[in-house]
């Protein structure tokens, strides 16, 4: 292809201008993005109110038996964390949603998504009661996750490793109750995310997330417990410390709660360990009838509903 000098210089300068424009175009945009100080708490409250008022999805509950030890290999015989939501007490106020958003840094969504009901909230209102991931013992989402980002802990949590997630959304397609939320927007860049809780990372655009059953609280408690236990064992001659250690030599997650259960004024959400007799969960569900959504009743859910007395 022939090209004279004039044409050559013309092309070069065009490329240079394009390059310059490309290099600089972000500066003003980034400034705009940085102007906001992040959303206010009021915005989060309003969004929760909107979500509660929009909630239409209904739950079709069926009776289930009490969750027992997990059947997956490597499961802990001591711990299986879960929750029970008391439908007799719950009035559907939505406080749990706000508490969850603040605890887990759940971002806001842009207005058009909100109008379509596409919220990021880990807790939904369905049939007038809070509904979140049930942390199924035989979780269908984990089986289809290609990278292993969705996986089960020995303690019965269905956990997410955000950095391992490739965003294939296969887990979302395979969740029978649509408990999973996908980060369609870059909430940090759009100024929709606010880091209320420094313990929980903000999620990137393009990854899946869902209720973690306040995994970070359990992690912190477990690590603290193990540290203290070893100090207590080291001071073995010390009678009183030894006694304290003998109370529990294995971590059972006692005293840990989730943000939603803390926030519930009517104490309708109870968090605990299904395998620990001393856990409030076991004690308060003893004479109750347990329910779960029909779609996941066979999947051994850890988060169940209770209604009526036996």
């Amino acid at each position: 292809m022939g090209m004279d000098r004039r044409e050559f210089i013309k092309s070069c300068s065009l490329v240079a201008v394009m390059g310059l424009l490309y290099g600089c175009r972000k500066l003003p945009l980034d400034e705009v993005a940085r102007l906001g100080d992040g959303p206010t708490l009021k915005q989060f409250e309003d969004e929760v109110k909107l979500a509660v008022s929009q909630a239409k999805k209904q739950l079709d509950l069926v009776k289930v038996s009490r969750p027992g030890p997990l059947s997956i290999p490597g499961a802990s015989p001591l711990n299986r964390f879960g929750m029970a939501i008391d439908l007799d007490l719950c009035d559907g106020c939505g406080e749990c949603i706000l508490a969850c958003n603040k605890e887990n840094n759940v971002p806001l969504v842009p207005e058009d998504d909100a109008a379509r009901g596409r919220f990021m909230h880990w807790v939904d209102m369905r049939s007038g009661a809070p509904f979140m991931c049930a942390h199924c013992g035989k979780a269908p989402c984990e089986r289809v996750c290609p990278t292993g980002a969705a996986n089960h802990t020995p303690d019965g949590l269905s956990a997410m490793v955000y950095k391992r997630c490739a965003g294939s959304r296969f887990c979302g397609a395979n969740c029978p109750v649509q408990a999973r939320k996908f980060n369609f927007n870059d909430a940090q860049k759009l100024g929709l995310a606010r880091k209320f809780n420094k313990e929980v990372p903000l999620r990137d655009k393009g990854v899946m997330e869902k209720c973690s059953l306040c995994l970070h609280r359990l992690q912190n408690d477990r690590l603290k417990f193990k540290t203290q236990l070893s100090v207590a064992v080291a001071a073995a001659g010390n009678v009183s410390v030894k006694n304290a250690a003998e109370n529990a030599t294995e971590w059972r997650g006692r005293g840990v709660t989730t943000a939603c259960s803390d926030a519930c004024k009517r104490r309708a959400i109870i968090f605990g360990n299904w395998l620990d007799e001393k856990s409030p969960l076991v004690q308060l569900t003893k004479d109750r009838v347990l329910y779960a959504p029909r779609e996941i009743a066979d999947l051994d859910p850890s988060v169940v509903f209770m209604r009526g007395r036996r």
């Binding site: 290609p146 990278t147 292993g148 391992r164 997630c165 490739a166 965003g167 294939s168 959304r169 996908f182 980060n183 990137d204 655009k205 393009g206 990854v207 899946m208």
Partner: peptide, 9 residues
């Protein structure tokens, strides 16, 4: 994929 950078996983 939502997070293409991780496709190789």
């Amino acid at each position: 994929l939502g997070y293409l950078q991780n496709f190789y996983m």
